[in-house]
Amino acid sequence: MREPENIAGLVKLPINYIGHIFYEKSPRYVSEVIDLPIPKTIKRTGVFVNADRATIKQTILDQQLEAVQLHGNESVALCQEIKDLGVELIKAFGVDDDFQWNELEAYLAAVDYFLFDSKSEAYGGTGKTFNWDKLKTYPYAKPYFLSGGLSLENLAEAYQFDDERLIGLDLNSKFEISAGLKDLDKINKALKIIEHEQISSK
């Protein structure tokens, strides 16, 4: 998110996180400070790819970030250093059928959450799902977000995935008009689907 009017509309909705991408190669790159009020119920989240500690720390201060998502090949040590700055730390991993869960073990104490996305040579934003059955073999207690190709067509299926460790759905490219510009009508429809699934599951 980077367009002021679009952000202003989005934060009126019952969402938990709003993401800003600080990766220069991304078409959603945010190049300046976003000076807009965000409700305390929504965590302002910065997404970084292989950035150094100093850059991330300064951006946390400039952008008043409450959460950081690391989407590159960041080390366990860097994750711990960023977490120690007092922000929520989310570490993203690209998953495919060959992904080995033991790659996560070293990160368990250094992150608050994992985010599982579709594996790609690029960093995120593929608009494609991975085989969610893979998650049935996830062996750790660490909670995670699901990302990658979520859409109005598969959102109910994702929400019904029977795993209490799945704590959030990352809505991105399938809910955009263009890169960095969310379709608020689609977001509204997505939230209604989620609300319906919550009521149905009670």
Results as ranks from 00 to 15, higher is better:
Gly148Ala: 06
Tyr23Val: 01
Ser201Gln: 12
Tyr144His: 05
Phe175Asn: 10
Leu169Ile: 12
Ala51Cys: 13
Pro14Ile: 03
Ile194Gly: 05
Leu169Lys: 04
Cys79Trp: 02
Ile38Met: 08
Val68Leu: 05
Arg44Gly: 09
Asp97Cys: 04
Leu181Met: 06
Tyr17Ser: 05
Ala77Gln: 15
Ala156His: 00
Lys202Met: 07
Glu32Gly: 01
Ala106His: 10
Leu146Cys: 01
Thr126Gln: 13
Glu32Val: 01
Lys186Val: 02
Leu108Trp: 05
Trp101Asn: 05
Val11Lys: 07
Glu5Gly: 06
Asp163Arg: 08
Gly46Met: 01
Ala122Tyr: 11
Cys79Thr: 11
Phe161Trp: 14
Gly9Ala: 12
Asn172His: 09
Asp112Tyr: 10
Lys134Gly: 06
Tyr107Trp: 03
Val87Pro: 00
Lys192His: 13
Phe161Met: 15
Gly149Arg: 07
Ile38Glu: 11
Val30Trp: 01
Leu155Ala: 01
Leu171Gly: 07
Lys189Pro: 01
Trp101Lys: 04
Thr59Leu: 15
Glu5Asn: 07
Gln198Glu: 14
Ile90Tyr: 13
Glu103Phe: 13
Phe116Gly: 01
Ala122Asn: 14
Leu169Glu: 07
Ala92Arg: 09
Thr126Val: 07
Asp183Arg: 08
Arg2Lys: 15
Glu88Ala: 09
Tyr113Val: 06
Leu115Arg: 03
Asp98Glu: 14
His71Phe: 03
Gln198Thr: 07
Ile194Asp: 02
Ser26Ile: 12
Leu70Cys: 12
Lys136Gly: 04
Ala156Asp: 10
Asp185Ser: 08
Leu108His: 10
Leu70Gly: 13
Phe114His: 12
Ala92Lys: 03
His20Val: 10
Arg28His: 02
Lys57Tyr: 11
Ile56Asp: 01
Asn6Trp: 10
Pro39Ala: 04
Asp163Gln: 03
Pro27Ser: 05
Asn172Ser: 13
Glu88Tyr: 06
Ser26Glu: 14
Leu184Glu: 03
Lys25Asp: 00
Asp183Ile: 03
Gly72Met: 12
Ala141Thr: 08
Thr55Leu: 09
Ser151His: 06
Val76Ala: 14
Phe116Leu: 04
Glu197Ser: 12
Glu176Lys: 06
Leu171Asp: 09
Phe114Cys: 04
Pro143Ile: 09
Lys83Thr: 00
Gln80Val: 00
Asp170Gln: 04
Pro143Ser: 07
Tyr29Leu: 01
Leu78Lys: 02
Leu171Ser: 12
Ala8His: 08
Ile90Glu: 08
Asp84Cys: 00
Val68Lys: 03
Ile21Ala: 03
Lys57Val: 08
Asp112Gly: 12
Thr41Asn: 11
Ile34Arg: 06
Leu104Tyr: 00
Leu181Gln: 09
Thr55Pro: 00
Gly72Cys: 12
Ile177Cys: 04
Gly94Gln: 03
Leu36Ser: 00
Ala158Glu: 04
Tyr140Thr: 11
Thr41Ser: 14
Leu36Pro: 03
